[in-house]
């Protein structure tokens, strides 16, 4: 193996090792976050620093504070399980009942204090037909 190939191999090994270190060994909640199902969270009583949960907004569960419109709480559900989410900040335009959401934040007292709230991107939203009449 010539020197160019040796240097390339060394760089490659260093970067790959760095990748493995970041994802598998470094304890940093900004790097990795565990995805929980709503059912899993329903069974957990202890505090978790960072969780990520996907699901749908439970109809009629959205409560917006009268004091501050940026403050909201709602329930995210998957099948029969649901978890309460508290969020402060600007909400996405597609945030409404039954919207598909992904939330990240800390979990304590059986509720998520979300720091991130994302709804399904508009370019991927496939809603039911809105202006129909049953025959």
């Amino acid at each position: 193996m010539n020197k160019v190939n040796i240097s390339i191999s060394i760089i490659f090994v260093i970067v790959i090792s760095w990748i493995f270190y970041l994802t598998n060994f470094k304890q940093d909640s900004s790097l990795t976050v565990r995805y929980y199902s709503v059912a899993e969270l329903s069974d957990i009583s202890n505090q978790i620093d960072k969780v990520k949960v996907g699901g749908y907004i439970k109809p009629n569960s959205i409560v917006i504070s009268e004091e501050d419109q940026l403050e909201a709480s709602f329930f995210v559900y998957q099948n029969d399980d649901s978890v309460k989410v508290y969020y402060y900040g600007i909400r996405p335009d597609l945030f409404k009942d039954d919207a598909e959401v992904v939330v990240s934040g800390s979990f304590d007292n059986s509720q998520i204090s979300a720091t991130e709230l994302q709804t399904k991107c508009a370019s991927r939203y496939e809603g039911d037909l809105k202006n129909t009449e049953k025959i």
């Binding site: 994802t23 990795t32 976050v33 565990r34």
Partner: peptide, 24 residues
């Protein structure tokens, strides 16, 4: 692909954040 790989490895689905992509 880390969420898929980590789930296949030990059943825990782990997502990596923007910080991982930026650091590298």
């Amino acid at each position: 692909l880390f969420p898929i790989l980590s789930e296949a490895w030990d059943g825990n689905k782990i997502y990596v954040g923007a910080s991982y992509f930026n650091q590298l």
